[in-house]
Design a protein around this nucleic acid. Structure first.
Length: 769
DNA sequence: TAGTTTTAAGTTTTT
DNA sequence: CTTAAAACTA
């Protein structure tokens, strides 16, 4: 009776002692160091429910913050399963909390509540209007540095700004950027965190109100919090507020956007009296998988160094698969999945992981060809398409007539005879009428030639109609179809767009009347794209929102803050049963029975330029990926990969060497240096296109082999055949820094160098000499 | 100035 | 290979 395990309700009984301790903890600040798969989400959701249920806490006084919308949704769902009232707790991402805050209190910092959130593209456009003709690379650098500055809670005037960018012009550019953004009245991602902190510091009344409202604040994935987010947390935590953060330093993978592992290491110092609870039992992965994952991250210095213990013993060793090239990699994944899924009939057990989004293409093509259902997670591509950004810019301009970025983008699209000179003139004029660009355009229009003038009038008319539609929805309702049926759909119009309910009426009209539907339809006919269909999708998405200014703001905010569109097919289980294609970064917080990690090559993962602290982050990313696997893990490494369309030989990833070979099953031909496994050559057979193909290996010959020749398996003077370059002979074999290099001269006169370990599938040896 | 053709460049990772 | 920038023509 003393250990508390008896007579507990089931939702508490299933917890292990550490988890239970974490749930029951109250009073002082709490830091939960939770290893991968140790049940931290369960702890948070249970804690929320427990506080409401057993402690009688008002759900509204609980704030739980996560980093992704997916995690926030899942958390809310799971907490509600334990106690329905948990639905009233505030569960948000940091950024959505910031947006929520600024809609209410932004006016205290001179921000209109109708602000729009700029994405990276928009901030780039804004910057380019400041830095007129700078090269794009520099523009990007500055934009990146400004975002970092905000992550570190640094303003243009702060001395510490030199940590981010020490060039003197940076400070001035940052200041100009801020000034312009303020004038426009919009915000970027960084502002969603930084501005609330500034307001809370400046306005004691607001701060007090928040501290009174939230009695409990919890933060998930705390290792990914940046300095500004830490400051926000501190401002929200008054003396009486209970704060509980959960994190794992080994899973910190967002340094590039300002995440500071320091936050978690120094939490006990910043919140005096902090108690620490460790969750070190992994319930997810089998022991061999966990061991492989751990041995990689063990190579990192600068970690707290926890010991994760696998609760699941047994299980197959992770497989290390060597493949000739990326096409074979995709084919291997498809075959493996198809064979195994035939037994279990479950595609959704599988996930294919890759380092960069571009890698998904091979898998999509191959899976499509073989009829394997898949879903692409986090492909934010949709909202980055030109046609979608066009429509969104028009919508933004409806809400905020000061939005210069949107105005510049759309006023002359499609071409209306308004070149940069005329547009600049309007923007200049807007300074005289409170920044209202529509008003400025109206004033300037008479100065222009009839062509430009009528073009401008068309644009203004479209915008006015759009605004009117939001204010007086009744006027835009189709008169002939007044049925209240929610499923009603009006007929297709000339551009093939279908407008549905609510806000979609306005979006459809705007897209059509502005001429961008026609514009992109024409592009479709030339290039055979899907642009009009994409616009239709956007129109459909809008139907969930009210036909009003408020509805439009919600729509835009949702798009900026939650770009995952994959949750729509949630209800249909048939569509849900699909293989997941996903980046390593996006897998955080997820789990799968079987995981295939792809592209494990030097230069791809880890990426070539990674050293020191950044290399350690890549290692953590490997760790995150590997610990997603419950039952089986596959690691794929290709000898050859097309980079910029050119086949490039690659070494196996450093991380593969950091796993003890006795803990892996090696499949395929291990390249040079991967001890024990069969050599790349020695067997005949034609592999891959564009590869070197070898027949039986030649004998030693008369001359003594050099060290490099022995290691490479190639000899000077050897004849060979390559199916791209034809016949040739080996001119030289020497040791390069990435292993032995073979220089070959072909009969065409072309000379090429190959990494011997990685012509992999081999050359065809014709004869010695 | 608008639209086309040619040439060069470039691929992290995300809220 | 795909996209962006530059150069070119109508």
């Amino acid at each position: 009776m003393s250990n508390g395990a008896e007579n507990l309700p089931p939702y508490l009984e299933i917890l292990n002692p550490e988890q239970r301790q974490a749930v029951f903890h109250t009073g002082k600040p709490l830091l939960i160091l939770a290893g991968a798969g140790s049940g931290k989400t369960r702890v948070i959701t249970t804690k929320i429910a427990w506080l409401i249920r057993e402690k009688g806490l008002n759900p509204r006084s609980i704030l739980a913050v996560t980093f992704t919308n997916k995690a926030a949704r899942e958390m809310a769902e799971r907490a509600r399963l334990i106690d329905e009232r948990a639905g009233d707790a505030m569960l948000r991402t940091f950024h959505s909390f910031g947006a929520w805050f600024l809609r209410r209190y932004g006016n205290l910092a001179g921000l209109d509540s109708g602000f729009v959130i700029y994405d990276n593209d928009d901030t780039l456009s804004l910057l380019s209007s400041i830095m007129n003709d700078s090269p794009k690379a520099e523009l990007k650098q500055i934009a990146y540095d400004i975002a970092r500055a905000k992550d570190y809670f640094l303003s243009p005037g702060d001395a510490a700004l030199s940590i981010i960018d020490r060039r003197k012009k940076f400070r001035s550019l940052y200041a100009q950027y801020e000034e312009k953004m303020t004038r426009i009245g919009n915000v970027d991602f960084g502002d969603l965190i930084k501005k609330p902190v500034e307001i809370l510091r400046k306005e004691p009344d607001v701060a007090r109100r928040f501290r009174e409202r939230f009695a409990v604040i919890m933060v998930d994935e705390y290792q990914d919090a940046n300095v500004a987010q830490f400051e926000l947390l501190k401002e929200l935590c008054g003396p009486g507020v209970y704060v509980c953060v959960v994190g794992d330093d080994d899973q910190s993978i967002y340094r590039f956007r300002g995440a500071e592992v320091k936050n978690i290491l120094e939490f006990p110092d910043r919140f005096p009296g902090t108690e620490i609870i460790r969750l070190e039992r992994n319930y997810r992965s089998t022991a061999p998988i966990l061991s492989a994952a751990s041995s990689v991250v063990d190579h990192n210095r600068g970690r707290l160094g926890k010991i994760l213990k696998a609760e699941r013993s047994g299980g197959r060793l992770p497989a290390l698969v060597f493949l000739p090239d990326q096409d074979e990699e995709a084919a291997f994944c498809a075959t493996l999945i198809a064979n195994m899924a035939a037994e279990t009939a479950s595609w959704s057990d599988w996930a294919v992981l890759y380092r960069i989004n571009a890698q998904s293409l091979s898998f999509e093509t191959e899976f499509l060809r073989k009829g394997i259902p898949y879903k692409l997670v986090g492909s934010l591509k949709f909202y980055e398409r030109e046609e979608i950004k066009d429509a969104l810019a028009l919508l933004s301009f409806l809400v905020n007539p000061r939005d210069e970025v949107a105005f510049r983008r759309m006023v002359n699209k499609p071409a209306r005879g308004l070149g940069p000179v005329k547009v600049d003139r309007i923007i200049e004029e807007s300074a005289l009428c409170g920044g209202d660009l529509a008003e400025a355009a109206r004033r300037v229009a008479p100065e222009y030639s009839s062509k430009a003038r009528s073009g401008l009038e068309i644009f203004l008319k479209v915008i006015e109609d759009g605004r009117a539609a939001l204010e007086k929805p009744a006027l835009t309702e189709n008169t002939e179809t007044k049925q209240p049926s929610k499923k009603r759909r009006s007929s297709k119009d000339r551009e093939g767009l279908v407008s549905g309910e609510g806000l979609s009426i306005c979006v459809a009209r705007l897209v059509k009347d502005s001429g961008i539907a026609e514009y992109h339809q024409m592009k479709d006919e030339i290039a055979g794209n899907q642009r009009l269909n994409n616009l239709q999708e956007l129109v459909n998405a809008a139907s969930l929102y009210a036909l009003s200014r408020k509805g439009l703001l919600e729509f835009l905010e949702h798009i900026e803050l939650d770009r995952s569109i994959e949750d729509r097919s949630k209800d249909s289980s048939a569509e849900n049963n699909a293989v997941t294609l996903i980046t390593f970064h996006n897998t955080k917080g997820l789990e799968f029975r079987r995981v295939i990690m792809t592209g494990l090559e030097q230069g791809v993962f880890p990426r070539e330029d990674k050293r020191g602290e950044e290399l350690e982050e890549e290692r953590r990313l490997f760790y995150v990926g590997a610990t997603r696997a419950m039952d089986e893990l596959y690691l794929c490494s290709c000898a050859l990969r097309r980079i910029f369309g050119r086949p490039t030989p690659l070494e196996p990833s450093l991380f593969l060497r950091e796993i003890d070979k006795s803990g892996l099953r090696i499949i395929g031909k291990a390249p040079y240096g991967f001890g024990g496994a069969s050599s790349a050559r020695g067997r005949g057979g034609l592999y891959g296109k564009g590869g070197m193909v070898s027949s039986a290996g030649g004998r030693a010959g008369g001359r003594r082999k050099s060290g490099a020749e022995t290691r490479s398996g190639w000899r000077r003077g050897e004849r060979l055949f390559h199916d791209d370059y034809g016949y040739g002979s080996v001119m030289e074999v020497r040791d390069g820094k990435e292993g032995p290099v073979v220089r070959v001269r072909f009969e065409t006169g072309k000379e090429l160098r190959f990494l011997s370990g990685h012509q992999g599938s081999g050359f065809v040896k014709i004869s010695d000499e």
